[in-house]
């Protein structure tokens, strides 16, 4: 067992965990933040994506005990306020970018990070490339790409439709 202290969604959280605890289990089982999902056991699906110090990671493949004290983690629960969704969540809702919703928390965290890392602008092609680590079994991705374009615009980042592609 070991004691760790992390900054989760802006709050200091202490926990006593077994060394083998995965970050996703810490978030879901110890801290009760069940918005982050587990969709596979091969590190492929991206349902578990959260951000560590501003970089997206698959929380099912990170040992919580290896994170330095004070590491900042943000999960899907950090986004909406009591009266408003984050613009990216709003865009997912408006574009019908989810059906069962299992992949959505990881996709929304990823989408926001794609926008932040590409302030000069987004194209559907770039989004497609950046979504390689997030699998959605329902939507066929078209509405997700549209939602990220719309969410990016709402976050103030320019979007360019690729040639021959409707925005």
């Amino acid at each position: 067992m070991r004691d760790i202290v992390l900054n989760v969604n802006g709050k200091t959280r202490h926990a006593r965990i077994e060394e083998r605890t995965l970050l996703v289990s810490l978030l879901r089982d110890t801290l009760g933040l069940t918005g982050t999902h587990v969709g596979c056991d091969t590190s492929q699906c991206g349902a578990c994506v959260v951000s560590i110090e501003g970089e997206t990671v698959k929380s099912c493949s990170v040992l919580a005990a290896t994170l330095p004290d004070g590491t900042a983690i943000s999960t899907i629960e950090s986004l909406a306020t009591s009266d408003a969704l984050h613009p990216m969540q709003q865009a997912f809702s408006e574009c019908h970018a989810l059906q069962c919703g299992y992949c959505t928390p990881g996709l929304v965290i990823t989408a926001i990070d794609i926008v932040r890392k590409n302030p000069e602008g987004l194209t559907p092609d770039l989004i497609r490339k950046e979504l390689k680590g997030n699998i959605c079994r329902c939507t066929g991705y078209l509405n997700i790409i549209q939602a990220i374009m719309r969410g990016a615009a709402a976050m103030g980042v320019p979007t360019l439709a690729a040639e021959g592609e409707a925005q």
Binding site: G46, V49, I52, T56, V57, G133, N134
Partner: peptide
């Protein structure tokens, strides 16, 4: 190599 999340680790 891999995807953006795996490349971060």
């Amino acid at each position: 190599i891999a995807d953006r999340h795996v490349r971060n680790r």
